[in-house]
Design a protein around this nucleic acid. Sequence first.
RNA 1: UCCUCGGUAGCUCAAUCGGCAGAGCGGGUGGCUGUUAACCACUAGGUUGGGGGUUCAAGUCCCUCCCGGGGAGCCA
Length: 430
Amino acid sequence: MQECLIRDFPDFIGKEVTIKGWVSNRRSSGRVSFLVFRDGSGICQVIAERDTLGEIYAEIKKIPIESSAIVHGTVVEESRAPGGFEVQASGIEIVQKSEEFPIGKKEHGPDFLLSNRHLWLRSQRQTTIMRVRDALVRHVRNYFYENGFTLIDTPIFTTTCGEDTSNLFSVEYFDLGKTYLSQTGQLYLEAAISGLGKVYCLGPTFRAERSKTRRHLTEFWMVEAEVAFNDHKKNLELQEDFVSYIVQNTLAEKEAELLSLERDLEPLKKVVPPFHRISYDEALDILRKQGSDIQWGADLGADDETVITQLFDKPVFIENYPKQTKAFYMKQVPDKPEYVYCADLLAPEGYGEIIGGSQREDNLDVLLKSIRDNNLEPERYGWYLDLRKYGSVPHAGFGLGIERTLSWICGLKHVRETIPFPRMIYRAYP
RNA sequence: UCCUCGGUAGCUCAAUCGGCAGAGCGGGUGGCUGUUAACCACUAGGUUGGGGGUUCAAGUCCCUCCCGGGGAGCCA
């Protein structure tokens, strides 16, 4: 009798095996019980018969859902069974008889599920999403590996910040006073390009925004890339190549999982270069023709983005925003200094912004002025300003939100299901 | 921070004009040899989020606080 995984059942048809896992569901009849059994690799059906199992059958017949058990039996192909296979049990050992499991067979509300996230994470839908997440992150890393990037892990505790201080979580740091949880690794990546040329980071990012929407978490994972000598145009080309790669590879690897999430795959198949590009000014024209009274200089709102994404069937870049709406480090367009070389990438089907990127200001004096104009303290940016003193070069980069991208790929309504333990404004438990 | 919706059994929800607080799932007991959110019978289970008020009478109306969902702003 050989221990094996449910995933490998095709190689064990007709053989005696041992599987270890949990009872996802149970249906009992008089002398036969059907257990839906999960072992972390897949699901199958276990047939437990009174005449075969003897004394323990009385307990198996009433075994609570989510009890853990070790099952010995013969693997049989069975189209009616969940997973396509069943195990005719010759013996079952109960590892632990579960207490009444809070999450039942009926639907539950978000409050209850989020409070029980540690248990919800076992459900088939949630494990499916986690498997797609695993694939997505792996393809992200593969892309950068295959394209000559070096991974640079940027710090979580920081004293310099990329945007403005209002969105930072602060932490007491020994005798040094306040440090902040990182809201971007970009500034550190900019330091790394001078030694490594093409770099990326992938890690948690923290934003103390009091946002309560399906697109926001206070702790999320972001992948950021930075490339020396890339200008704005090359930056966009890199982004569309990257996004197409991760979408197509994840789709190819996890097609069955996405279908089980009831994702329509056709829109994803269209995600190939080139993506649409429109300028901020063109976006304003489009919005005004639709009746908006948006003024030049205002950032695009969520409704505005929705209007624009509905015009396109694949991701769309909105580039060259007014300088006043964007972060201090973005490079001004030489002959139009009121604009900066930047772009947001909006995902289709109403998913909205998944990337923010820009060419960075590489001139020391211009950058210093921009820091002052944004009411930031130049003293805090000493090391960052150094980068413009010692062999400064044109460079550009971007950051992509893993959860927003995964939410789009899976076709989910909310990013909270895309991360194992979501952190939101009113939730830091479990 | 603002707007909006909600809080009734362990869970999901119902309760008409203010008039006996209910169902399904889950739990318990029993039945059933192929189930598919299995099914059938019986059964237990309630400070209707907290506090205050109006009323003969409040889950329902009013005030207030707490908790959560969705959205705005901001962002990935």
